[in-house]
Design a binder for these strands. Structure first.
Lengths: 344, 344
DNA sequence: CTTAGCACTCTAGGGCTAAGAGTGCTAAAA
DNA sequence: TTTTAGCACTCTTAGCCCTAGAGTGCTAAG
């Protein structure tokens, strides 16, 4: 038999093993594969033996069937798998959710985690839009007490951030002037742009209207601090736990550690922010130890052709990639559309 | 022996059982109690038998020591327990955390969940200050596009909420007028007050400056919606899980369900909002099934003598009440002070 | 009322066994 | 040369029995 056919048969067997294991979480024996593919169980055993040698599948123990390795899943996701179209029923449900008017971006993002979880039955993850990356649209200072000013920032993406600062002097009268100054000076710049421009200004105008500039400088400092923060939202953390891989308390705990210390997840998503399309990390491909039994499927969403955030799911490596990858993709497109529509 | 002494000895034994069990999570045998109290193990067994009959302790099985029942803990918390003073080291740590300048209330509240968890080694819970209950201080409308207005609300407590509304007309010019109108009309009222006043206004001025009033009405509607939401923050969800009661995956899952569906917890805390001092719910005293292996210790925090929110901890019924109750109390006092100072 | 003594109960853990699932190898069949 | 049938082998799982140990409850004596 020519080499091509051997490969093809191996692939077919691997595919059968994976799709069976993904559904049942039970090791797959040669007999059950033989029923699907037509060859005898002995032949299948030979093929399986080859697949195991090449590292695509393993044994939990001698007398058990085979289960896919991370490498097996990777091969499946990379070439074997046929992506399924998202079900019209699901698409309808998603569309419906986003058709409802939302009152701010936080609202949209939080809802998105729930939708991700609801559709995929995994835990939904959304990295909040990066304020840092979006351009500055509007600042408003509101005096709310003696020497207390509320600063409200609006980015072009519609993200709003606010913080309260204590000013050196009572600024009640000057609030409007500073607001106007900041707005006209910095409109349309990114945060980095604002910072640069501010520093130049400070050098040029050492003497004139000093206190105003100083106050503005304080405000920008607070802003910069505020934007360092990553915000990561999770949804459907408990629906995951009905999966058999979380029968042991230990695996549940490592999952919880992931959920609680969000920094690892958020770093991971941030690194891939600029990546077009879907990214999949399978098991050991994750650097974080707690995540090495998990797969993570993510995709970035955009605002006016700029990637501003990323969303996806995390679950056991045994997940229905062929179905979930299109789902994540679809949701990221809808989020993109919704955010763009939200700001017209 | 007079009745009083019998009672006293029973109490003493119950206290020993509880404080031992709280520390080790191991059933307490008669011999170990006898070592502490001086009587022989046989005597202790008699006393234990009485305590069991009265429902304060049980057996996991015949040949095991005793463990406290919910009723036992209740009795301990209600009368037996001697509250310990908070350790100066802990108090110092807490004070330090709150001395750092925070940039907004969300920040303070989130930090508080972490501090609660860090000090008590349970999961920290904070019910966000009720916007509904605080009086209106400042509203700001910011035009951020054609027919899009950002509404920023500031309550006297310093809580800030924002939402974006679509207006019927392009309001760019009128934004300031509406802002001023709303500010002067409604300053110092609660939400309910604003609603009432608005409705009266609408009736009186059927003809004059109609569109203005209509716009204002829209805004208030969105506001009212926004304040229905409860916000509950949790911290230290995974530190709990090192406790032996969470060895079984099932118990972990029911805990996760509590964490994920926050509405039950938040309802519970809201109900007790007006209660002075510490509230403790032990095991079956909780109506929610998932919580029946847990105890919840909470206390309200205030703004200017008004209860505005509530904070506390949730953990296994086996917790060090004598130590944790003062800790929760202390933190609620510090949060009260911090919030009041934050707005002077 | 307290205590010593003793029989009794129950759990946890180890060792053993049998059933079942699935493999790997070999030799025969296609 | 590839496929298949057959069979011995391995390993897990569940159940069973047993023992050691912890702790009780009861009784009778102090």
């Amino acid at each position: 038999m020519p080499l091509k056919d051997i490969m093809e048969r191996q692939n077919k067997v691997l595919e059968i093993i994976i799709s069976s294991y993904v559904g049942t979480a039970l090791p797959v024996g040669s007999r059950s594969v033989s029923k699907v593919i037509g060859f005898s169980s002995a032949t299948i055993r030979n093929i399986m033996s080859d697949l195991e040698e090449q590292g695509y599948i393993t044994h939990p123990h001698t007398s058990a069937g085979r289960i896919p390795t991370d490498k097996g899943y990777r091969c499946y996701v990379g070439s074997l798998m046929r992506l399924k179209n998202i079900k019209t029923e699901e698409a309808r449900r998603i569309d419906e959710e986003y058709r409802l008017k939302r009152k701010n971006i936080e609202d949209i993002i939080k809802k998105t985690t729930e939708i991700l979880a609801g559709i995929t039955h995994q835990t939904g993850i959304v990295l909040f839009p990066k304020f840092k990356r979006s351009v500055f649209k509007r600042i408003n200072l509101v005096s709310i007490g003696r020497k207390k000013v509320l600063v409200v920032l609006v980015a072009s993406t519609g993200i709003v951030r606010h913080f309260i600062i204590d000013t050196k002097d009572d600024l009640d009268r000057e609030v409007e002037a500073i607001t106007n100054l900041l707005n006209s000076e910095y409109y349309g710049l990114t945060i980095d742009g604002i910072k640069g421009k501010l520093l130049r200004r400070l050098k040029e105008e050492r003497d004139s209207s000093r206190s105003l500039i100083e106050e503005a400088s304080d405000i920008i400092d607070s802003m910069l601090q505020l934007f360092q923060e990553d915000e990561l939202y999770l949804g459907g953390t408990s629906c995951l736990l009905s999966q058999p891989e979380f029968e042991s308390a230990n695996s549940v705990k490592s999952m919880l550690r992931i959920f609680e210390d969000k920094s690892a997840l958020s770093r991971l998503m941030e690194e891939d922010l600029e990546k077009e399309g879907i990214t999949v990390y399978i098991g050991k491909e994750n650097k974080n130890k707690d995540m090495q039994n998990c797969s993570i499927v993510t995709s970035s969403y955009r605002f006016k052709d700029e990637f501003i955030g990323r969303l996806g799911i995390i679950g056991p490596t045994r997940m229905e990639y062929s179905h979930l990858i299109p789902a994540v993709n679809y949701i990221s497109e809808i989020v993109t559309r919704t955010l763009n529509e939200f700001m017209e």
